[in-house]
Structure formats: structure tokens, C-alpha cells
């Protein structure tokens, strides 16, 4: 028997098969062209599936980091402008102390200066209690606790300025994650920046300096408190010795500002790196997943021609019959 015998059913079956595969290729291409994606199921291109799934979660992660830095930068800006105001106030206090140490001022003048210094102290405490997004930024992690409490005695003199936030020795840092595995602290400890102050206890009247309990505290607030006390008592030597403390406090605030300026810089650098990474990943993702339209459109045209040819052949072959010649 002749192996090349073609049968009517066989011919139409094989033509039908070709037509089916042409149609399915055509459908696949038009799907790619209309959806814009060449990979829509896991098995479309298994070698890039892993990368595509990874890239999509990586992109989301990187965008989170960018958002984090934008929001953290606003908090850092608040911190910096607060500390800048503090710097101005220290400068003002230094000017007043320098004037008062001159020795040419009367007691009345000194009392006047003390009132101004007290105002400065109050402003510093207000600044130390700055809130950002509902959080006291200098309270460490005790974000709902007001950082400083100021108390006055019956004469209207400052009695104490105490810090209520997380102590410097404790885990006071609040962290922001800015890139894979990197988180940075974005808050300064209030006590480290401003210090504390408890006034000299003069242990009742009449005033007997020998049983006084000396003023305690640290940092800027201590210096300002002592300055206020010295001005009240007219002790110009003590006033002049406060100048050193004010200088140290100024340096301390500047150092803190520098530290967080460095964090801001780090943000900027990290943002640049992340933006570059995002661009690279998106390009890669698009290479793997997106349809190359010009290629698909030309393939589509080729496939369309092939399909039309198949239709034509099918109709011609089907109409071909010996019957027509009988």
C-alpha cells in the first residue's frame, strides 16, 4: 500500500491543525500587543518569572524607603530649625551675660537683664517641647511625654526645669529604615542637648548662704539657670563664669546640628542610589515583561498573512473535487 495515500478526512484534518496553530499564534500575538505584556503567566517565560516576582516586590520596598526618607527629612528639618532658634537664643544670652559682666550696670539694670534671661529660658524650654506629627521630638522614645516641665517658686523665680523623656543612657533612638538592612536614628536626646536645672535651695529665711544646697543640673539649661540666679544676686563674677558654659552649650548644639545634617546628606545620597536602582530595575522589568510593540506588530502582520494563506488554501482544497470534472 502506498504510504503517501492522502485521504479526504486526513487532508482536511491536517489543514485544520495548521489553521488552529496559526489562529492560536495570532491570538497570542494580539493578546501581547493589546495587553502590553509578553509574560502574563508563570510558565510564559519561567527563566524570568523569579526575577519578575522579585523585582516587583523590590520596587515596592525601594519606594517605601523613599517615602520613609521624605517623611524623616521633614522631621529632621523641624529638628534643625528648632536647634537653629536655640542657637540664636544662646547668642542672645551670651550678649546679655557679656553686658552684665561689665560691672557698670546697676542692680535695677541686672534685674532687667534677669527678666530677659528668664524669657530666654522659657523660649528654650518651649523649643525643647517641639512636636512633629504628634510626637515630642526631644523626648526620645517616650514620644507622648512632654520633654520638659518648668516650675516656678512663689516669687516667680525658676525652681526647676526637669527632663521627662527617655534618658541618654537608655534606648532613646527612634529608627527609620532607609535601605536594605540600614536604619538610622533621626532623633536627638533632649537631655543631651538641653540639660537640666534645679535651682539653689536657700533653705528658708533669713538667708544664710552657708546652709544653701547648690544648684544642680547640666548643660545649657543649668548654665542659663545659674546665670539667672547670679543676675538676681548681682554676683558679676558668677555671671562672667557662665560665659564659658554658654560657649560649650553653643558648641554642643552646633555639633548636634552637624550630626543630623550628615544624616540628611546620607538621605540625599541614598535617595540618589535608590532612584538609580529603581530606574535600572524598571528597565530590566520592562525588558523581561513588556511587549516589544514594533516586533509584535510585525510578527502579527506576518502571522495574519500566514493565516489568510491558510484560509485560502483550505477553501481551494475543499472545493477541489473530481466531481467538478465529471
Amino acid at each position: 500500500m502506498d504510504i503517501n495515500r492522502t485521504t479526504t478526512l486526513g487532508t482536511s484534518n491536517s489543514l485544520l491543525n495548521y489553521m488552529r496553530s496559526s489562529t492560536s499564534k495570532y491570538n497570542e500575538l494580539s493578546l501581547q500587543a493589546s495587553s502590553g505584556y509578553k509574560v502574563t503567566t508563570l510558565s510564559d517565560d519561567p527563566s524570568s518569572t523569579r526575577t519578575l516576582v522579585s523585582i516587583s516586590s523590590q520596587l515596592k520596598e525601594l519606594n517605601t524607603y523613599l517615602d520613609n526618607m521624605t517623611s524623616a527629612q521633614t522631621e529632621l528639618d523641624t529638628l534643625d530649625s528648632t536647634l537653629s532658634s536655640v542657637t540664636d537664643l544662646i547668642q542672645k544670652a551670651t550678649d546679655l551675660a557679656t553686658q552684665a559682666a561689665n560691672g557698670t550696670y546697676s542692680d535695677e539694670d541686672l534685674a532687667n537683664i534677669k527678666t530677659q534671661v528668664d524669657e530666654i529660658i522659657k523660649s528654650v524650654v518651649d523649643l525643647a517641647n517641639t512636636k512633629y506629627d504628634g510626637k515630642y521630638i526631644f523626648s526620645g522614645t517616650a514620644t507622648s511625654t512632654q520633654a520638659y516641665e518648668i516650675t516656678y517658686d512663689t516669687d516667680g523665680n525658676i525652681e526647676s526645669i526637669l527632663y521627662n523623656g527617655t534618658l541618654p543612657a537608655s534606648d532613646y533612638e527612634r529608627y527609620v529604615t532607609i535601605s536594605e538592612g540600614v536604619s538610622v536614628s533621626i532623633n536627638a536626646n533632649g537631655q543631651s542637648v538641653f540639660g537640666t536645672y534645679t535651682a539653689t535651695d536657700d533653705n528658708g529665711t533669713p538667708i544664710d548662704p552657708s546652709d544653701d544646697v547648690a544648684a544642680t543640673g547640666s548643660g545649657l539649661l543649668y548654665t542659663l539657670g545659674v546665670l539667672s540666679e547670679s543676675l538676681a544676686s548681682g554676683d558679676q563674677t558668677a555671671v562672667s563664669s557662665c560665659l564659658t558654659g554658654l560657649g560649650t552649650a553653643l558648641d554642643n548644639v552646633s555639633a548636634t546640628r552637624t550630626k543630623f545634617a550628615a544624616v540628611s546628606n546620607k538621605f540625599e545620597l541614598t535617595q540618589d542610589v535608590i532612584n538609580t536602582t529603581i530606574t535600572t530595575l524598571k528597565t530590566y522589568q520592562s525588558d523581561l515583561r513588556d511587549t516589544d510593540l514594533s516586533e509584535v506588530m510585525s510578527d502579527l502582520a506576518v502571522q495574519q498573512t500566514a493565516l489568510q494563506a491558510t484560509y485560502k488554501v483550505f477553501s481551494q482544497v475543499s472545493s477541489l473535487s473530481l466531481l467538478d470534472f465529471m
Binding site: 523626648s139 522614645t141 517616650a142 514620644t143 521627662n164 527617655t166 534606648d171
Partner: peptide, 8 residues
């Protein structure tokens, strides 16, 4: 107990 902003 007051460090409610701790996010470690």
C-alpha cells in the same frame, strides 16, 4: 513604660 515611641 513611658517609651511608647520606641520602634526597635
Amino acid at each position: 513604660q513611658d517609651d511608647i515611641g520606641n520602634n526597635a
